[in-house]
Design a protein around this nucleic acid. Structure first.
Length: 232
DNA sequence: CCATTAATATATA
DNA sequence: TATATATTAATGG
């Protein structure tokens, strides 16, 4: 297991995978969903852990005004906990791709964790990775203003996933402005303006599947100023 | 779908 | 009260 695994969960998906659950699929209930299918309706109580065998689930919650907000995505190997959560918000789980999932009840889960120490370790590690993501999220929201949050996300992505290619950093990642908006809580129009601004300053450029950073130091400087960067 | 732009409204320091 | 951010709506790739 890598050291520091807990620090590398920047995006709300690909949390630490629990591969050993695959050995116990026969003890749970396996179901197939098509893209767009609802897996758990808002308010529905299923008292299970939903393990994603393949595909991807999207977990959103409804605001009081009835608007949806993304919480995280559960990729293959990760899970959605609908067992230990205290439910004071309306969570909606939707299949974002054709997916195969396995429902484990509390008894089935506890049995696995008791039988197999490695499963226990993976489960805790996976939960910790998700917990770490949301703790970071809470800290960002509390300490930084919207545009700085976007800059910080880009900076962190560069440090962790950036590759130095002839004097520029390339982050090979498919990340839409809308996704960045969901992660940072910054309105998507504002995200668009931020990228426009960064492009004009020749600090970085984003394409649909790549972010190229020309001036990492300038990016850092903007973050350290702790101000908004949009001036019109 | 996703990104851009403008016009307008809120929010915040 | 100036600046930052959100909202809405229209438009284009």
């Amino acid at each position: 297991m890598e050291k520091n695994f807990n620090n590398n969960y920047i995006l709300p998906n690909n949390f630490y995978p629990i591969n050993k659950f695959k050995n116990y699929l026969n003890t749970g209930i396996v179901r197939n969903y098509r893209k767009g299918d609802s897996v758990v309706s808002p308010g529905e109580i299923i008292d299970s852990v939903i393990y994603v065998i393949s595909g991807k689930l999207g977990i959103t919650f409804l605001t009081e005004e009835g608007k949806k907000r993304m919480m995280f995505h559960a990729d293959a190997g990760t899970f959605v906990d609908r067992l230990f959560q205290s439910d004071d918000c309306l969570v909606h789980v939707v299949s974002e791709e054709d997916s195969i999932v396995c429902f484990f009840s509390k008894d089935q889960l506890l049995e696995m964790l008791q039988q197999d120490k490695e499963v226990l370790c993976e489960f805790i590690t996976s939960y910790a990775s998700k917990c770490g993501y949301f703790m970071h999220e809470a800290k960002e929201m509390a300490l930084y203003n919207p545009s700085v949050r976007v800059l910080r996300l880009l900076y962190r992505l560069c440090l962790t996933k950036g590759e130095l290619v002839n004097n520029t950093y390339e982050i090979n990642i498919k990340l839409s402005q809308k996704a960045i908006s969901e992660i940072t809580g910054v309105h998507y129009v504002t995200v668009c303006k931020i990228f426009q601004n960064l492009r004009e300053r020749n600090i970085l450029r984003k394409t649909s599947n790549k972010i190229i950073i020309f001036e990492l130091k300038k990016l850092k400087d903007l973050i350290d100023q702790e101000q908004g960067i949009l001036n019109y």
